[in-house]
Structure formats: C-alpha cells, structure tokens
Design a protein around this nucleic acid. Sequence first.
RNA 1: GGCGGCUUAGCCAAGCGGUUAAGGCGGAGGUCUGCAAAACCUCUAUUGUUCGGUUCGACUCCGAAAGCCGCCUCCA
Length: 471
Amino acid sequence: MPLKIYNTMTRQLEEFQPLNPPQVTIYACGPTVYNYFHIGNGRTFLVYDMFRRYLEYKGYLVTFAQNLTDIEDKIINRAHEEGVSPEAISKKYTRAFFDDSNALGIMPADIHPRATDHIPEMVELIRKLIAKGKAYESEGDVYYSVRAFEGYGKLSHRKLNDMKAGARINVDEKKKDPMDFALWKKAKPGEPFWESPWGAGRPGWHIECSAMSIRYLGETFDIHCGGEDLVFPHHENEIAQAEGATDKPFAKYWMHVAFLKMGGEKMSKSLGNFVTVREALKLYSAEAIRYFMLSSHYRSPLDFSEESLKEANAALQRAYNCLENIKLKLGSPTGDTEEIPLITESVAAFDAAMEEDFNTSRAMAVLFELVTALNQKLAEKTLSAEDITYLKSGEKTLRLFGSIFGLFGGQAAKEDENTLDGVVKLLIQLRQEARARKDYATADKVRNELTQLGISLEDSPQGTNWKRILQ
RNA sequence: GGCGGCUUAGCCAAGCGGUUAAGGCGGAGGUCUGCAAAACCUCUAUUGUUCGGUUCGACUCCGAAAGCCGCCUCCA
C-alpha cells in the first residue's frame, strides 16, 4: 500500500509520489530564536521528526532542512529590552533550540540554514521579483505586489477580496495594496542591516524560507511542513515569492500540524498559556512527552495537561514493562544483530496505519496489541523454542516501532546504572536474608525505603527484580 | 463578514456504510505473594452532541441546530 498524505493545497489525501525517488526533500519551518521554544512548538518539531523517521524507515533517502530565523523584529525587540545585541539573543536561543530539541530526542536536520547566512540569496530573489514586475520598491522598502501573482490564496483557499472585507487594514502609504507584504525593510536607526540595491535594510518575514528552500532543495521539492498557523500568510507568501520568481511549482505536498492547546485554547506566547520544553522536561521524561504528542493524529488539536502527561507516562511504562519482562524471562540480552524475524502481522498493521497520513494513534494501538500478546505468552508456565523466538521477535518488533516514535531508548546513563544495579542487588540480598529468618520488619523497611528513592522491588517465584519508577 | 475544523465510554483517543465501535488511562475482578506493592491476565460504550433526510442498512453520507476551537495580525 502506498503512503498517503493530506495535502493542504488540495485539501485531500494524496498518494505520496516523490519527485525523484528514493530521494525525498523536506523543508520545515523552524523557530525564530528569540526565546525558549514551548511545547506547542515542540509538538510541531516532534511531528516533523516522526515524518522523517518513518520515511527513512520506508527506505527513502530524506534530505531534511529546517531553518532558523535569526533576524526578525522580535529578536531586535528582545535585544533592546535586555540591552544586548541581536546577535547575542539569536546565538543564545539557537543554542537553546538545539539543546532542547536534542533533549526531546529530535534528530538534527540535515541542514539548519540561518537567515543571516543567506542574505545574498534573498536579495537575488527579490531582484528577480522586481524584474518580473511582482515586487516594487518604495522609499527603501520592497513590497510584494500580491495582485501580480495569480495564484495568491491558493494554499489557504481564500480570495483577496474576501480577506479585505474583514481585515484590519493598516494604512501604510508605502504599500500599493494593503495586502502587499514586505520583502525588504529599510533599516531604522540602531537596527542591524545589510547593504542591498535598495539601500541598507534587512529581509522581510517570509523571503528567507523561499530563498533557502530553493537554495538547498531546489526550485521544486517534495514536502513543505509547518504549524497550522503558518498556512496564511507565511506559506502563502512563500509560494508567491518562489513561484513568482521561478514560474515552477514550489512544494509538492503541504503538511500542517495542528495546535497544541492548553486549557482548551491554543497555546501561545501572547496568551501566556504556555510551558517551555525546558520546564516540561523537568517534570516529565522526553519519552513521555513524545508518547503524548504522538498519541493523537497530527492534524487534530491536542490539549496539554498534567493529567494527560501522567496517562502517557503510565502507558509508556506498560510498554517498557513488557520489554523488561521479556528480558528477564529470556535471561540474556537479546542482541539485535541476531537473525530474528519481525512479527509480520504487527508490522503490516503498523504500516497500514502509518501509511494513512501518519496515523500514529492507530499505530500506537498496534504496538499495544502486540504488548498484550507478548504478555500473554510471558504468562505461560513453560515456553517452547517457538515461544522464545516469538518473544524475541516481539521485542525486536516493539523496538522497531519505538524507533519510529523515538521511544524505548532508555534514559538513564549506563555507567550509573551498573553501580546502582550492584547496590540495589545487595540490598535485595539483605532483605532476602531478613525474610528467611522471618524478620519482616527489616525486609519491609528495605523495600519501603527504596520505594521512597524511586526504586521498586518486585518479588517473583524466580527471585526479586528491581526497576526505577518512571515519573 | 470570509474560510476551516471538532463533538465517540469516567478521561484521552482511532477505525468503519452492514462483522465483536481500536488502543491507552482510570475502575472492577483474578493470578502471584509471609503481607504487600508491582507486574500480568480478564472484564469495562446495544451506543456514537441533537434533530431531520438518503439507504435494504449510518456513528460513518447529506442537511439543519447547539456547543467548542482555529485562521483571516507576529505566532509551530
């Protein structure tokens, strides 16, 4: 079965046919680095990561580019507030972006182009647009003449005249049409600037994405993704800029991630109802956050709450338990270099779900159905050679699914884990001795104190096992 | 005003024109255990916001209503 993708442009599910298989080119809108990013942004980045992991698993050779907007009004404002240079701000939060992304288990993009490194490309694109009559200079600014681009509005499915009806119109003498948008902004005193044919200034809000995607992925590429709120005007403008200049179709598939909500409303910095990834990671593990984000479909809004993160954590624990119980049952660690087959029915069901526009919710259900099946096998008193193979296959299959979601990586440092293991085993032994002489007060004390420390002991006919209590 | 989306069990969340409406959390039983905890197993929506319609048959298609959310302005 082919992969199907919902394309915002056509508002339909389309069969995914890359321009040059097995190559797949993806451009994803990244952050403006003026602040720590919040988990709403995190959802979008996590979804990109899942797209990419799945496509790679399917055998595509993915080139994934995600930009960093490092020159923009917000950065300049922030710099003024803090009394530092805009570069200092963008540098600090670029670093934070990489740190936090990494902490969430997000794979770095193949290319992370920065706006300020691509001013010449932007100038060139603007020059082309002016030459083609799609843009005009006005007192040191350059604007895109929206009505000169026939397809304007085709992505967001709106007509210029409809928008005009309800929009608050900024009376700007320099614009020919209120909907025209800035490609180049004349520098104000104290602002960073670059020289250009139109004088000193800086690029407008949208031009960087057109310029950098063309530069790295070509004039036409496969997938362009972003948050839902970028459909208009950002992506609409990108299309106008790119197609207006090249006369070639820009992105083939447009994918948009729905919002993360909090308290029933869109999480946003202006509303103040946000939690940064940094803060969230103090309370929940990266994998719990990932599980939560991928437990619903990427085009459905999702409400963030402490409760839902706890649920996610409990679910994740269940899957981890299964993996752990297989390991305990089979004794030795199962090397993944072994020739162990996958559980084909599960893989097929998982694929069928993912091929339906990345239905992670359904794919997650497949994962848990396998967990239950493996647990049932684990509950049997005696295991045949076949059963053991089945368990090994199950483990391998679960780990495969986990790798697409970025789960089951384990989180604690291994060296610490070894020391800890020795210590806990010693305590288990002491407790065992206390139990043997029916000194249950001591036995219970050991267990209870360990529980307080986040370590739980579990007695079984084969002996006592321990594990960390996920939080 | 224009455009779009959502409404499924206590909660989160999927599929599907006709088979038992996934899965997770929670809850209830049970297995194990010195007790316990944990783990595991089993069970947990005759019903799909409401009202009409199409159909042999609708939660699924169409229409209307109610409620909620979003974009049209920087925003992932």
